[in-house]
Nucleic acid binder design. Sequence first.
DNA 1: CATGAATGAGACTTCATTCAT
DNA 2: GATGAATGAAGTCTCATTCAT
Lengths: 207, 207, 207, 207
Amino acid sequence: MADPSSPPAAPRRRLAEDERRRQIIAAAIEELAEGGYERASLTRIAARAGVSKGLIWHYFSGKDDLMESVASATATAIRERIASRLDLTEPVPAVIRAALRHVARLSVDHRAELVALTHIAHNLRHPDGSPRLTPDHYEASYRAQEVLFRRGQAEGTLRDFDTRVMAITYQGSIDAMLAHLQAHPEVDPESYADQLAELLLDGIKSA
Amino acid sequence: MADPSSPPAAPRRRLAEDERRRQIIAAAIEELAEGGYERASLTRIAARAGVSKGLIWHYFSGKDDLMESVASATATAIRERIASRLDLTEPVPAVIRAALRHVARLSVDHRAELVALTHIAHNLRHPDGSPRLTPDHYEASYRAQEVLFRRGQAEGTLRDFDTRVMAITYQGSIDAMLAHLQAHPEVDPESYADQLAELLLDGIKSA
Amino acid sequence: MADPSSPPAAPRRRLAEDERRRQIIAAAIEELAEGGYERASLTRIAARAGVSKGLIWHYFSGKDDLMESVASATATAIRERIASRLDLTEPVPAVIRAALRHVARLSVDHRAELVALTHIAHNLRHPDGSPRLTPDHYEASYRAQEVLFRRGQAEGTLRDFDTRVMAITYQGSIDAMLAHLQAHPEVDPESYADQLAELLLDGIKSA
Amino acid sequence: MADPSSPPAAPRRRLAEDERRRQIIAAAIEELAEGGYERASLTRIAARAGVSKGLIWHYFSGKDDLMESVASATATAIRERIASRLDLTEPVPAVIRAALRHVARLSVDHRAELVALTHIAHNLRHPDGSPRLTPDHYEASYRAQEVLFRRGQAEGTLRDFDTRVMAITYQGSIDAMLAHLQAHPEVDPESYADQLAELLLDGIKSA
DNA sequence: CATGAATGAGACTTCATTCAT
DNA sequence: GATGAATGAAGTCTCATTCAT
């Protein structure tokens, strides 16, 4: 009947529902970024989204579910945004340089999402107090990085080193960069990214 | 007759001011580390410390003051613990290797304090929602690192690079290391520290 | 099975905003009148109104706002009740006699409101401790009285005297009358009012 | 042994004790006058008196006892201060004029005590919520006034009227005067007192 | 589908009072 | 006698969640 890739009669309900979810998630991100986790009450989120408080329970099963949805939506969006801009066929050092530049730009374009994600990762808990988003949250990224590093080692552009430690270090450098760029808007993101790439690739020891 | 569910109503000991403050701060650190910021209510903290809720206001002006006290006490303790173990007269690369090893060991010996400090840094806010512990919280560390790096450049053991970017990267690598070591107790801290030192000093590019 | 000590958990009715506000204000008045300012906690007020504690914050911004609402609602109601019963076209002495009678009756019909208003006026404070309802609270009444007195002087039914002092004295006599009538229910309000009118109009000096 | 009216070896403990009580009572009066009943916590009172919190329980059985002591000490002091200045052998109208002048001056010299007394009278309660200082608190004054008025009627300087109503009115006029003088320091107390005396003695009706 | 009135648990805080020192 | 550390009850207030409309 209809081509599923561009349905001419897509169920409006569905669309409106996704719209609403996005709207609430966006409001949650803004609240989290501006006031931190504790102040991000559902009352404030609903108010900012311009919907009634009760509506949140139509689209999410509760606060925890909303927060988890925010986290996964944000993480996915960020990952896709970067991946889509990289040419993975280039030599690995070049890929790393490009990736750092792209990430640095994120701090400018998507600051709120990054901050919100951090808050949720640190604060969202199970009822017993244990974290809901473990650091394995980074696990996917780590693995992707390791694949990249090993390709570099195979193609001879990278020397031999522990790829897991480097993946963690790489992620840590990025987090620190993002935090610093957000706190210091006067610093040029791309220049910082280039310096960081140089440090990671060449080390700091002389000779 | 005896109610096993409630402690036998401690006999109201009178402690020195410093001792009590430390006791309450210690309880706060444990609560923060185990349950995160939101769960760390003063009710729970007092209960864990084995004192009445009201006593907290005898020693701190309120929750924010307690949290700030926890943060500064913890930060000071950590800094001193590391500084006292370093021999700063050695060549800079050796200092860096030693420092990373010491820090790595922290994740084993003082995990709770590190986690608590992180939670407070991320969540403690002014009444208007703005963060109370800005990232300048790291500023002192950054400066100290930069001094070290410049000495290395002067003595010829380090090449020329942007010391500020490196200081930030260094701190970020450490935070990532600590998080990873805490999530993965099976990883050997000192071995990780050595690998990290090698990466930072030599870079990852071949030849 | 049924617990006689707690009401059968009212079925959560939904009321119009004005109705609920009035209900809560009425409960506050009763609590204030019966137990004074300190005992009039929001817990007790909510319990008496038969609503949950939290609902009070739905209709008032807090305790102070509730108390101020009680005060202004009460003051308005009282003023209107008296004004509507007076014929201001009569000679001033007759107006005064009639007014005093009406006010005296208030002590019978609206004792609780009067007491509540007094408590709020004496106890409601700004955060710094300064009174929230200044005696200028009476200012409107004073001015109205003075207008009346001056008309009496113009029409020749009253002699020349300081109208401000008389307005204050008049109000003070009324407050004292109300307090006395409330403490002594055996005294006849109208008879007292008539005696008071005679005193104020004729003085007590012989000849 | 010793003349009790001027004991040469009066027990020093006693004296110190009275001193302390007065000191605490004075602090309570100041707190009550400045911040009202609710803010007058024993912590604040002790701090203002410059003694430790616990000491209050050495001299008073608790907060209520302290407040009652404040009230009775204050009432006694005020009454004596006025009585000692009056010449009761003069014609009653003159006594009234003089008394009103003295009372008016009180509002300047002893404002705090008057305010404190009012606060206690309005707020001090029995555990069940019933007032602790009934309006009979005024009863002694009323009776004294009535005696005075009846003497005036006997000596022919006052006409015939209900002395109880007049006593209440007299007291009410005074309370209103004091409140007004306190709120309006620019008003001259003696002038107000004279106007009030004229009103009460001569009434306001013309001819 | 959507609203927001209503609830109840739990948070922070204050304060009269007790008691070890 | 005097102190102030310590307690426990009660108060104001917030917030996730439910439910009548």
